[in-house]
Amino acid sequence: MSVLVIAEHENGVLKPETAKVVAAATKIASDITVLVAGHNIAEAANHSAQIAGVQKVVAVDDASFEHQLAENTSELVVELASDFSHILFSASTTGKNIAPRVAALLDKSQISEIIDVIDADTFKRPVYAGNAIATVKSLDSQKVITVRGSAFDAVETQAACDIEDRSQSIASQVSEFVSIEQTESERPELTAAPVVISGGRGMQNGENFALLNGIADKLGAAIGASRAAVDAGFVPNDMQVGQTGKIVAPNLYIAVGISGAIQHLAGMKDSKVIVAINKDPEAPIFQVADYGLVADLFDALPELEQAL
């Protein structure tokens, strides 16, 4: 058995998700190859080679893969696929975009967002917004899988393994990158942060999200949001935590002015410690909170910042 892991990177920088996907791969087989496809990816390839357990890195550095479009990246993965029994992607928006295309081209059924590896064919995955955990067994000869990063601990580093440079160019005829509006933030990424503080509709507007800044600074936290806060335009979409946003499992999750809808809980209920601040004592968020405080957030947040 052999696993191909598709590296998750942005602008040539390897993302922490990759070492988590390798952690899942390690539970399947010891023969692990990482594919880094993109443009100007030397640094990402070097870092991939240093992830413990990785035996080989294949680096495909070409302008045609700069934006990791699904149409051409999937073709590249399919070309490499025959050597591998398992092909693993991160369940990021990039992985979710490309993996099913690879699976269909290989005529395989994909298994999405695994949270555990039982054996090489059998995996656990949440369904119904995490209200049920399914154990599924793949009957396909080759598996295409996406991995939920929050469920796996990143592996350590190692002395770098070999990097094979592969020159290949596949231009997509049907799809073209136009632009990216990237959210700039000095804060840690939501999915990698040890502490996350999220605001909901109770924050009332975008300016009030500033009340979370001082606390986030003191805790080294990332700032998240509920869908209602995103929909109302308080904050950008990439801050959304939940079933259809980002899945996080930090050591500490602080939910402020968030009611605790099923879809929000799906994205954060595996956090180690959950704190909820809400003025409604009946809010469902208190049912999953380790520590609940019934308070007006406009009083509680400045006090919390002071107390830290």
Binding site: E10, T93, S175, E176, F177, I180, E181, T183, P236, D238
Partner: peptide, 14 residues
């Protein structure tokens, strides 16, 4: 225009 992890990406498709 696509909602991606880092923000919003726009692609043009035939």
């Amino acid at each position: 225009t696509r909602e991606v992890d880092g923000g919003l990406q726009t692609v043009s498709l035939s």
